[in-house]
């Protein structure tokens, strides 16, 4: 049985149909990336998966059961800043534990080690406005991961980072994922990132009425190093194959805009 399934999902905003008839299955522990031109509805699909947005048609199944309301299994790293501006980095990360009834002292203790894992061990008492965009993203990542969700929804989490930090974080994500094999739905603009991280890359068409137009299994061996794997012939072959399809859509989105 699939862990998460989109079944003929359509989402309309008023008269504008953003996505139409999207069907997608994520096996337990699978790492799936969603790529597509800007505005095609990737964030919209993540919102649906998180239970924040009800589809206009179709449904989302979580472990075979239709999803009603918020998705209890999901941790969602939003595309926009979503951490609380009035809490320090440490308190932001501790918060999900506090929501679950952990006392502040203990929650902060555990938050500290998560901040270190995302490379922010030196900034526990900084407020979000005192951190860079990339640092805020990493606080968000720690905040999502500390709650140990079984489903991880990530919306372009690393796009604000420089190349080095980005590869560091990608490897760190893969290492963490390898530990307990969460199911991951990962949205990115960056096809290379998608291939390097995923078990499967899903390509969406340009909007409106965006659909899934291609699914590519990525049979690259694990564990992977994202920097090294980019140089293998197999990677380049996959990249060429998927880019062939994606390029047309990107052009179409560009012409439509």
């Amino acid at each position: 049985m699939s862990f998460l399934e989109f079944r003929q999902v359509s989402v309309a905003f008023g008269p504008y149909v953003a996505v139409e008839g999207v069907s997608l299955r994520l096996a337990p522990g699978e790492f799936v990336s969603l790529v597509g031109p800007t505005g095609c509805g990737k964030s919209t699909l993540l919102n649906v998966a998180a239970g924040l947005l009800a589809p206009s048609h179709g449904e989302v199944l979580l472990e075979g059961k239709p999803l009603r309301g918020l998705n209890p299994a999901a941790g969602y790293l939003f595309q926009q800043d979503a951490i609380l501006p009035w809490k320090t980095a440490l308190d932001n990360v501790a918060l999900p534990l506090v929501f679950r009834g952990t006392p502040w002292r203990e929650a902060r203790e555990r938050a500290r080690s998560w901040l270190e894992k995302v490379g922010l061990g030196r900034f526990p008492h900084h407020y979000p406005h005192q951190l860079s965009g990339g640092m805020r993203k990493r606080v968000g990542l720690a905040q999502v991961l500390i709650a140990n969700p079984r489903l991880l929804l990530m919306d372009e989490p690393f796009s604000a980072l420089d190349v080095q930090t980005r590869q560091l974080m990608e490897n760190e994500l893969l290492r963490l994922w390898q530990e307990d094999r969460k199911t991951v739905l990962f949205v990115t603009h960056d096809l290379e990132e998608a291939i390097a991280l995923s078990d499967r890359v899903v390509v969406m068409s340009a909007g409106p009425r965006s659909r899934v137009i291609g699914e590519f299994p990525i049979p690259l061996p694990r564990p992977r190093d994202v920097a090294e794997i980019r140089l293998t012939p197999e990677f380049l072959r996959l990249h060429r194959e998927i880019w062939e399809l994606l390029r047309g859509e990107v052009m179409r989105a560009h012409a439509g805009a």
Binding site: A50, L52, L70, N71, A74, G75, Y76, F78, Q80, D81, A82, I83, L84, P85, L95, P96, V98, F99, R100, Q143, V144, A147
Partner: peptide, 17 residues
Amino acid sequence: SPVVLQNARLLGAGQGH
């Protein structure tokens, strides 16, 4: 901010939180 609010709710915040 609606995003901050949705984030807090997804992280498990109840009404009191």
